[in-house]
Simulated assay, not measured.
Amino acid sequence: MQKLNLPNYTFKLKSNENKTLIFDNLRKKDVVLTPEEWVRQHFVQFLIQEKNYPVSLISIEKQLIINNLKKRTDIVIFSPDGTPNIIVECKAPKIKIAQDTFDQIARYNLKLNANYLVVTNGLQHYFCKLDKEKETYIFLKDIPSYN
């Protein structure tokens, strides 16, 4: 898999029926290793190991219903009180991050009302904080660490 603009982490990989699987520590199961999954697994480890977010506050592929359609967020980090704090949208490294990616995560946030949004393809990362009064996003240099 492609080298990402994130630290290197050790993952458990295995092969099954001509597919490579990666063990997801949060979901406690093997999942098919797609380029997007490679980014998701790296970003989860970045959140845990570099930003000190507790595993217990991180959810992967949380289902949402938006306009009667089932959607899934890539990563949601909750506050200790159970409210969504950060939504992370992961794309494969070859996918250029464009306005439609931000539109997608903004639609998810209409439902979740998180404080921060992150969009990453593993190579480029965009962090923003929602200004709820002005209904705008403020782009940040980095994602806040867990405190």
Rank of each mutant, 00 (worst) to 15 (best):
T73E: 07
M1H: 10
C128P: 06
G82R: 12
T136W: 00
I77Q: 00
F102V: 09
A92C: 04
Q2G: 00
C90K: 03
K28C: 05
Q99F: 12
N16A: 04
K28S: 05
L57G: 01
P80M: 10
Y146G: 05
Y126M: 12
N67L: 07
K51V: 03
Y9P: 09
N16D: 09
K91E: 11
Q45N: 15
I95Q: 00
S15K: 13
T34M: 00
D24M: 02
T136H: 04
N5C: 12
C90L: 08
K91I: 06
K51L: 14
F46S: 01
N68H: 13
K134G: 05
L26C: 06
A92D: 06
P84V: 01
V76I: 15
E133Y: 06
S59L: 10
D142E: 15
K129P: 01
E135F: 10
S59A: 14
K28Q: 13
E61K: 14
V119H: 08
L69C: 08
L64G: 05
V76T: 10
K134T: 05
G82H: 12
D24K: 02
I143W: 04
K70N: 13
L4N: 10
T10H: 13
V39D: 03
S79F: 02
V88G: 00
A114E: 01
E61Y: 00
P84D: 09
Y146F: 15
K94F: 15
D103G: 04
I48N: 08
L6H: 11
W38S: 07
V31N: 00
L26P: 07
P80N: 04
Q104P: 03
D24L: 05
L21A: 05
L57P: 02
V44D: 11
N115I: 05
I75R: 06
I95T: 14
I65A: 11
L21K: 07
N67H: 09
L6T: 05
I77L: 12
F127R: 07
L117P: 09
P35W: 02
L21E: 15
P54V: 03
P84M: 00
F78D: 13
S56D: 15
L112F: 02
K3E: 15
S59F: 07
I86S: 09
I97C: 04
I75L: 05
P7V: 06
P84I: 07
N25A: 11
N52G: 11
N109C: 03
V55H: 12
D24H: 02
N113H: 12
R72M: 04
C90E: 08
A114T: 02
